[in-house]
């Protein structure tokens, strides 16, 4: 079962919730955690994995042999991303527009194109002290496209470590989604079974919640809401959840101790035993929502 933890913007406590959920799940189930925020992955700060496997990922970009190329223009015509251009006798390739689809190489009548690996990022994986199989994607500085890394990350299944003496009941995958509501968020949700939104009861929180909720609805995924910093702001998020049939599965009160725990690199469940029970209940409710 795959659970995505998402929020419109950063700073709502998304990673805090995702890592806490992973920790309680790991008490009972085999858990895999994917940090899908390839621009600024930070879940490792809370789960402290030993990242001992490193893998470069990239795309295959075309290189044109000017001797063989007769500037017929087929490659430029076939490329849906305008990443290859033919003007006069010259062929230009724009690596930052290329999606590595291979169509130009495949269609070039002169076989003037060869492909080269362009490393755009990496995937690091390992195990956390509580036995969570952890992987994160990281986009290299200066690269514009995170999607290839994200797709690789979803395919990668970090080895689940058998720290438990009895076999786990089930395997849970928890994906910490990138902030925002653009393509990488859609890609993170694709193939998941449930989406957990983390929001704040403020007009900004509501605005962002509506955006991510629309994506999940589009993909036909069941979803629920965690309200963080409950008590600040207004009741508009509550009203929205009622009217759009989104169950509110957990409320985390505004509490100075939480901010302190996060600043010190611990999860909510490590900071407070009370939260451990609340997160167990949250996981149970998610499982119930998916299996109805």
């Amino acid at each position: 079962m795959r659970i995505v933890v998402a929020s419109g913007k950063g700073g709502t406590g998304k990673t805090t919730v995702a890592t806490s959920l992973a920790q309680v799940a790991a008490e009972r189930d085999a858990v895999r955690f994917l940090d899908c925020d390839v621009e600024t992955p930070n879940a490792a700060l809370f789960l402290h994995p030993r990242l001992d496997v490193h893998r470069d990922v990239g795309i295959r970009v075309p290189r044109v042999d000017p001797q063989t190329c007769n500037a017929c223009g087929t490659c430029a015509e076939i490329c849906r991303f305008n990443a290859i251009a033919v003007v006069g006798e010259t062929t230009l390739v724009f690596d930052d527009l290329c999606h590595g689809c291979g169509s130009c190489t495949w269609m070039c009548p002169e076989q003037a194109i060869t492909e080269h690996l362009l490393v755009t990022g990496s995937i690091d994986s390992g195990t956390t002290p509580d036995g969570i199989a952890f992987a994160r994607g990281m986009m290299n500085v200066g690269q514009a496209m995170g999607m290839p890394i994200l797709r690789e990350l979803k395919k990668s299944s970090p080895a689940l470590s058998p720290t438990m003496t009895v076999p786990p009941r089930r395997t849970l995958e928890i994906r910490d989604a990138p902030p925002g509501a653009s393509c990488p968020v859609v890609e993170t949700m694709r193939g998941a079974d449930f989406v957990l939104f983390v929001t704040e009861p403020t007009p900004f929180g509501l605005h962002d919640l509506k955006q991510v909720a629309a994506i999940a609805r589009e993909l036909g995924l069941p979803a629920g809401v965690v309200i963080n910093r409950d008590g600040i702001g207004d009741a508009a998020v509550d009203a929205y959840c009622v009217e759009s049939d989104l169950p509110i599965l957990l409320r985390i009160p505004m509490d100075r101790r939480i901010a302190e725990a996060i600043a010190a690199g611990s999860t909510l469940v490590e900071a407070n035993l009370d939260d451990r029970h609340r997160f167990r209940a949250l996981l149970e409710r998610i499982l119930a929502e998916v299996t109805v």
Partner: peptide
Amino acid sequence: SASGGAGVLAAQFIARLGAQAVVSGAYGPK
């Protein structure tokens, strides 16, 4: 209507139209 690389496509287009000069307000690197 291009989703990306509009500048590259437009540049090829006016090249094909036989332009030797172009006047616009801004040009991206590509």
